[in-house]
Amino acid sequence: MSENAETTPAAGSFLEGTWLRILAPTLLALLFLGGWEMMVRVREIPPYILPGPIAIWKTLLRDWGSLSVSLLITLKITFMALSVAAILGLVLAILFAQSRIIELSLFPFAVILQVTPIVAIAPLIIIWVDDIAISLLICAWIVAFFPILSNTTVGLNSADHNLKDLFKLYRASRWQVLTRLLLPSALPYFLAGLRISGGLALIGAIVAEFVAGTGGSASGLAYRILEAGYQLQIPRMFAALVLVSTTGIAIFLALSLLTHLLLRHWHESAMGRGDRR
């Protein structure tokens, strides 16, 4: 062999980094929760003002039956909104990359959609759309859509110009250029957009439900928070809040894992600090 390939990075430093990444925030969280519990007990704060973490945990376990039903509903809206946002964002970004006129005429409207506060238009959507689930879905979609669209558009436009020349040289068809050059180039950008949108879809679903304020058994976590607030069941309110945050974190972690799996072979962003070169 003439030139040598770079040797693989030291595994030790990577492992150390992973441990630190998990251990440090966990320790901080335990400290925070401990301090919180202690303060509530020492100062004898009543649970309807501020419940301690242990009380919240107990409530979460006790009310798991009704809370889990709501969690599933919120999850369903979030994922459907995210999927529609991902598909539509991708398709629209591809259209933008194919035709400048489509991009110039549609992009401003995508921006308008993005900058209009969802809290302000959610009531209108809820009035216009009969089905409450669909109106929640639309609200969540509006919030989640733009990061995917704009990121993917940037990604499709960022393909290496020499590679573009190469494809031109070999007389690649538009389809070949799209599938073999533009889409792979855009993948890291699309995934970054998806990670932002995952959190936003959840926020959109929650905000819209707050505005809609629908009750009944088929309501999501936001309504559980509202309802618990009205009834001064503050521990239950906190329990629902914990579920919302946990869901958000889980979505972020899942999408980060997906990004890592798809990009680990080639993209800087998906490599451990150790194997960067």
């Binding site: 290496d160 590679l163 190469l166 494809f167 070999y170 072979h265 080639w266 993209h267």
Partner: peptide, 20 residues
Amino acid sequence: PTLMPWANVIRNVALPLELA
């Protein structure tokens, strides 16, 4: 070198043939 970073060596070299 202008290689496709998402493709391994053989996929990169085979590209012109597959485009044809």
